[in-house]
């Protein structure tokens, strides 16, 4: 199986879906002639032309709204946010329009829209460019939220997102763009709403999404090598819909849970999962549910400290040892 980068996997997904369905088009800042700020869309404009790959001026609210309107009439826009942080100027369009128009129309309208781009800290660009809004958006019934951690998942989930008939908020990670994973050459889809057990273990469950799942894999290795503890890593892959069955199955097996995310702790995804576990797996738990999140402050610039602010393998290991 070929090894390709997370970036290439996304690029392939976009190309395949543009080719498959004439209603799919890509719109965003610098996505066409410039080949994408992070080169995710490289070569697509040359291949598919200006109708299918559209350079937009810096008007996130305007072109997200445009995409919502166009999707109501049956197009399937894929909007690139140069950074998900910039979606904050389009919040009204995302939450009020994409998120609510189906409901307020009593189900007469649907919005087959994807908004995608990087949502991560860790690149020394300061607080305004490091937001991770998956918890905010998952708090809006009507929206779906997907956070792939590997190239394989990124490709399969993006293709599913584009085929989904509801608005999907697709959150990538610039720190993963250049990393490689095995990805099959033949076409495949990864369903939205199904978690992936990325490592099996009997002693402890790490429940994570996005790059935090990769961090957990490293932490699980350290735990095994240095402490003889067998942790399993459940990668949620999507936040909403959420694979609650997989979460419960894992914790019922290991009886210990650490929920890890790069988001901030307050009302984060981990809070929701801890609540589910507290309610539905109370009797299965042998220890309190612990969480590891980004340290609770705006993202710091300082390159020497920023990666400390995010969950890293050592911090995850230390947390796990508190209950093992």
């Amino acid at each position: 199986m070929p090894q390709i980068t997370y970036r290439t996997a996304l690029n392939q997904a976009l190309a395949e879906e543009i080719q498959r369905d004439e209603n799919v088009f890509l719109i965003g800042e610098e996505v066409a002639e410039y080949n994408g700020a992070y080169k995710v869309t490289e070569g697509l404009w040359e291949r598919f032309g200006s109708k299918r790959v559209v350079d937009a001026p810096i008007s996130e609210a305007g072109f997200v709204g445009l995409a919502v309107g166009a999707s109501m009439l049956g197009l399937r826009p894929v909007v690139e946010m140069m950074f998900w942080s910039f979606a904050y100027v389009a919040w009204d369009q995302i939450v009020n329009n994409a998120g609510c128009v189906r409901y307020m129309s009593g189900g007469l309208i649907n919005v087959p829209l994807v908004i995608r781009g990087p949502a991560n800290g860790g690149t020394n660009v300061g607080a305004t460019h490091s937001h991770t809004p998956e918890n905010f958006l998952a708090n809006t019934p009507g929206l779906k939220v997907v956070c792939p951690a590997t190239a394989y998942d990124a490709k399969g989930l993006l293709k599913s997102a584009i085929r989904d008939n509801d608005p999907v908020m697709f959150m990538e990670n610039t720190l993963l763009y250049g990393q490689t994973w095995e990805v099959p050459e033949e076409e495949y889809l990864v369903p939205i709403g199904r978690a992936d057990l990325k490592r099996e273990g009997a002693d402890l469950s790490f429940i994570a999404h996005g790059r935090a799942a990769i961090t957990c894999l490293k932490a699980a290795e350290i735990l095994e090598e240095k402490h003889g503890i067998h942790a399993e890593v459940l990668d949620l892959r999507s936040i909403r819909p959420l694979d609650e069955d997989a979460i419960l199955a894992s914790v019922r097996k290991t009886h210990r849970a650490v929920v890890v995310e790069e988001n901030k702790p307050f009302c984060g995804v981990g809070a929701q999962i801890a609540s589910i576990l507290g309610e539905k797996a109370f009797d299965d738990l042998d220890a309190p549910i612990l969480r590891v999140s980004a340290m609770d402050a705006p993202a710091i610039y300082c390159p020497a400290l920023e990666l400390e602010q995010l969950p890293n393998a050592q911090r995850v290991v230390d947390r796990a040892l508190q209950i093992c």
């Binding site: 997200v64 995409a67 109501m72 197009l75 009020n96 329009n97 129309s105 009593g106 309208i109």
Partner: peptide, 30 residues
């Protein structure tokens, strides 16, 4: 709302509907 009559709402956020109108027109052109 009445999409069957080309009527797309009915929107409560002041001016929030304006880019949606733009998008409907964009889809027509597309």
């Amino acid at each position: 709302f009445a999409p069957d009559k080309n009527y797309w709402g009915g929107h409560g956020i002041v001016a929030g509907q304006t880019p949606l109108g733009l998008g409907l027109a964009y889809a027509l052109k597309y």
